[in-house]
């Protein structure tokens, strides 16, 4: 384990972060329509969306990346590795986050809906101003946990040639006689990142809690 190896691996850090943040943002947004449709009273909408969520979560992420990166070109859709990575991980995230939001929606007190309706609010207003913010609030810890998991899972994009941290660790490992050092180094970086982001998530959560309590 040498400083040079560490520096080389850290070249991949921005890509790791972009990949994670991009997929998480995509998932956070994409999860909203998914959860709304998933709760539709119309079975013809609800059931296919439910199936979609199950399939998105049921196929391993690495298989999704392969489908997008190696499979889609035969339909004329050619994506760069990073784009494919963000899209693939983002789609999977949308399905997981939809389920997290669903739990959050279930946690909102029935009285909140009744009060909003009694006040004559429209459904979109009620969802965006009353229910939505509360769902966001209760979902934060689960979303943060998911995000930390995603940070680790982003290493999978290495298999389609995204230049993230594991990519550099792997090429360092092959280039030198010290095959294990780069892997230990990248492992240490991931562990440090998870510890840091877990700490960040706790702080954020505590701050939000204080704001709601006030």
């Amino acid at each position: 384990m040498t400083p040079e190896v560490l520096l080389s691996i850290l070249q991949g850090l921005p890509t790791t972060l972009v990949l994670t943040a991009g997929a998480l943002a995509l998932g956070a947004l994409g999860g909203i329509p998914l959860v709304l449709l998933r709760r539709s009273p119309v079975a013809l909408i609800r059931l296919p969306v439910r199936l979609l969520i199950e399939v998105l979560r049921g196929i391993p992420p690495i298989v999704w990346l392969f489908l997008i990166f190696f499979g889609l070109p035969s339909l004329g859709v050619r994506l760069g590795p990073l784009t494919a990575g963000i899209l693939g991980m983002g789609a999977i995230s949308a399905a997981y986050l939809a389920e997290i939001y669903r739990g959050g929606l279930a946690a909102v007190n029935q009285g909140q809906y009744e009060a909003s309706m009694a006040l004559g609010m429209s459904t979109p207003d009620m969802m965006s101003r009353i229910v939505g913010p509360q769902v966001v609030r209760v979902s934060v810890p689960a979303v943060a946990t998911y995000g930390i998991g995603l940070l680790k899972d982003s290493s999978i994009a290495f298999t389609i040639g995204v230049n993230e941290m594991l990519y550099f660790a792997s090429s360092e490992s092959r280039a030198t006689t010290d095959a294990i050092g780069p892997f230990l180094t990248v492992a240490a970086v991931y562990i440090l990142l998870s510890v840091l982001s877990a700490w960040g998530a706790r702080t954020l959560n505590a701050r939000l809690r204080r704001r709601v309590a006030r």
């Binding site: 680790k152 999978i156 660790a169 792997s170 490992s173 230990l184 991931y190 440090l192 998870s194 510890v195």
Partner: peptide, 21 residues
């Protein structure tokens, strides 16, 4: 903490490509 902080893929790479050294 180590086991959970480390991506499974890194674990596999480490065991298969790293340990032989």
């Amino acid at each position: 903490e180590i086991g959970r902080g480390m991506p499974a893929l890194v674990m596999l790479q480490l065991v298969y490509f790293g340990l032989p050294s």
